[in-house]
């Protein structure tokens, strides 16, 4: 998931009786499946939680370009290069759809960018892992985008209109991403022995970080309960993780690859796979900024922002000059 550990009010969910009339009307509209639009009244907590969530989601799309951008110049064929380029461009687009959804809540784009660059706002833990081989491009598309889809498909029904609409666009494009990843994995898994080993190695390294994307169990979390009541979170982290494992395990078997979990086993009674939890200490450590690529990622984003400054300012100055010239001519 591209938004992790999002905190809401932390106060627990109010009953309808405890709400004042405005908030009750708001909650009843959500309960009835209605949408909240930018100019509608909304509780402050709803607005702030959504800014954090959509903002983190947008940042993840943008930072998520870096691990894949790493391989554009080294793609094995021209076709693979064009496909990867299109995929990375999509990620930029997804970031932009989400930023503009966040902006409807009253935060500026520059503010969101500054909060990413200063480390105040986070992005998904997954993008702090390195992409060491070409097979990693396969694993990222198949597993990372696969995990993201689990969360994004239900979010198309989220209560906040602009967020739901951004998700519809994103989901349409996301399925291309996962398929191109699986296509790479198929090629590698059915290739030479060295390619097969490379595919297995990519799966080994990306399996647990992908499971971490859903965040730790939140069955007991008051934040999640509030977000679910507001319908800005549609499923618990455990539900989505289970769904991801159930979908992915047979795909790994199809590839002839082994998921690095000796406890992974079909549970007839539950109708689901049993599996091992990832190392949550590692997850929290990565979130703290201690992932293998955390420093690189933030340096790259800060450099891009600083290096782009003259372009932003130059284009703005040019636009102002043109406007002034047009005014003078009229």
């Amino acid at each position: 998931m591209y938004a992790q550990m999002i905190k809401s009010t932390g106060k627990g969910v109010k009953s309808l009786d405890e709400m004042d009339p405005e908030e009750r009307a708001f909650q009843e509209r959500i309960n009835a499946g209605g949408k909240i639009e930018p100019k509608d009244w909304m509780p402050d907590g709803y607005r702030k939680t959504l800014i954090r969530q959509i903002g983190q989601h947008a940042h993840s799309e943008i930072v998520g370009q870096l691990p894949e951008g790493n391989w554009i110049t080294r793609a094995p064929t021209l076709e693979r290069k064009a496909i990867l380029l299109a995929k990375v461009q999509d990620e930029a687009g997804h970031g932009l759809y989400l930023y503009c959804a966040a902006e409807t809540l009253g935060v500026s784009r520059d503010q969101l960018t500054r909060d990413l660059l200063s480390g105040k706002m986070k992005y998904s833990s997954i993008f702090n892992y390195p992409t060491l081989t070409w097979a990693d491009m396969g694993a990222v598309g198949w597993l990372v985008d696969g995990a993201a889809i689990m969360n994004q498909v239900p979010l198309q029904r989220t209560s906040y209109g602009p967020y739901a609409r951004a998700m519809v666009r994103i989901c349409k494009e996301e399925s291309f991403h996962q398929r191109q990843g699986f296509d790479i994995m198929m090629k590698m898994a059915n290739g030479t022995e060295a390619q097969r080993r490379m595919a297995q190695d990519a799966l080994n390294r990306f399996w647990y970080p992908s499971l971490m994307m859903f965040g730790p169990s939140d069955k007991e979390s008051v934040h999640s309960a509030q977000s679910m009541a507001w319908k800005i979170k549609m499923n618990t982290n455990d539900e989505l993780r289970q769904k991801f494992v159930d979908q992915t395990a047979p795909q790994a078997a199809y590839l002839g690859l082994t998921i690095p979990d000796e406890h992974l086993e079909w549970n007839e009674e539950r109708g689901s796979y049993d599996f091992s939890e990832p190392d949550w200490d590692e997850f929290f450590d990565v979130l703290q900024g201690n992932g293998p690529c955390s420093v690189d990622r933030m340096e790259a984003r800060n450099k891009a922002w600083d290096d782009g400054r003259w372009v932003r300012e130059g284009l703005l100055a040019h636009a102002e000059k043109k406007r002034a010239r047009k005014m003078a001519a009229e």
Binding site: G106, D115, S118, R165
Partner: peptide
């Protein structure tokens, strides 16, 4: 997505980037 009303996203601090 219409332009924002004045928001109450507070407690942000400006980073040294512009």
């Amino acid at each position: 997505m219409s332009s924002p009303e004045s928001g109450s996203y507070d407690a942000t601090e400006a980073a040294p980037h512009g």
